[in-house]
Each structure stands twice: as structure tokens, then as C-alpha cells.
Amino acid sequence: MTMKSLFSFLFLCSLSSAVFAQQYFTRDAIVRFDATAANSPETIQAVSKSNSCVLTNEGNVEMAVLIKNFQFERALMQEHFNENYMESTKYPKAVFKGKIDNMSAVKLDKDGTYKANVSGAMTIHGVTKNINTPVDLVVKGDKISAKLAFSVQLADYKITIPNLVADKVGKTASIKLEAELVPLKK
């Protein structure tokens, strides 16, 4: 074996590990939630458009949501959300760590629409719970679009709603996520 072939072997080695570690990411995933109680006179909704998410071709997923980034229609709601309900200075981030369960059925290198299921640990307001929810993945070229929707019980995450506002703020929040991931180049 010559020195040259050794180096090409090494090069192939490193290349294969790079392919092995293919990852997709975004910094502007959109998260919306709605915690409006039935018959509430005002809607309790918010949106945040600058959330980070990473997905590997093995199906590992991680996501971080900065609580302070949520924008509400009403400034006072936003203030109460941060101050009283989410305590965003104490718990600045919500994070998710999990995986796509049926990754064998998802071909990230092949255009198409895939029904997948994602499960893992979600931490909100300092409380970690396991969640499990379907996700729609659309692969087009090297881009992956992900869409999912699920609900959480606010009490599960120790978010207490006082009786005084119980007619406006519901006991559950429906959460929607939209993300368009692109390959992470190192």
C-alpha cells in the first residue's frame, strides 16, 4: 500500500463519518399556541418565530424555544404570560429532546411526504414530561418541512391559572409547530 492510497483511505473514512452524521437544522421554526378557554371574550394566542431545531438522519430531534420571544396581541397578556404563568426569567427556555420512532420509514434523501411519529422529553416551566405526537415531514431536495400539532395540560407543567381568569385562559394549550430544516454544514 502506498502513502497515497492510505490518505485516500483516510479521506474516505472521514467522508463516511460525515455522511453518517448528516444533520438538518433551522433557527426560525414557528411555534404557535392557543390557550383560549371555551366562550372566552378574548383569544389567548401567541407566536414565536425564531426557534432552533436540529434533526439527524438517525431521527434524533432537539428543539429549544425562548419563552420571552412569544408575541401576543395584547401587551398585558404578554407581560402576565412571562411574569405570572411561565416565569420566564426563572425558566427562560422550553426544550424538547427526542427521536422519530419510525425513522426506517422516512427517507430524508428521497423527495416525498412521510407520516412519522416523534416522542421524547419536553421541558416547560422547569417540568419535564414525555410526549408522543404524529409529525408530517415533507422532503424536497435537501429541505425538510415539518409540521405538527399537539396539546398539553397546563397543570402538568405546574402552570396555574387563577380562578379570576379561568373564563379566559383554558386548562389546555394547543401547540403548533412549523419548521423548515436545511442541512447543517460544518
Binding site: M1, L6, F9, L10, C13, S14, S17, F20, A21, Q23, F25, R27, S52, V54, T56, E58, N60, V61, E62, M63, A64, V95, K97, L184, K186
Partner: peptide, 30 residues
Amino acid sequence: LLLFALLFCAMGTSTLFAQNKEEGSLLDQL
């Protein structure tokens, strides 16, 4: 030399594995 190269590759992948298992490693890359 070949042995060394193989070891090097193995080390490379194992550190990668270790990284993937480490908490928060995926987002840290951003």
C-alpha cells in the same frame, strides 16, 4: 501506519457517538 489510521477512524466515530449521546449536543452545534 495502517493500524494507526484505523484506530484514528475508530476514535473519530466513537467521539461522534459520544457527542450524539451527550445532552444538548445537537443544539450546541448551532
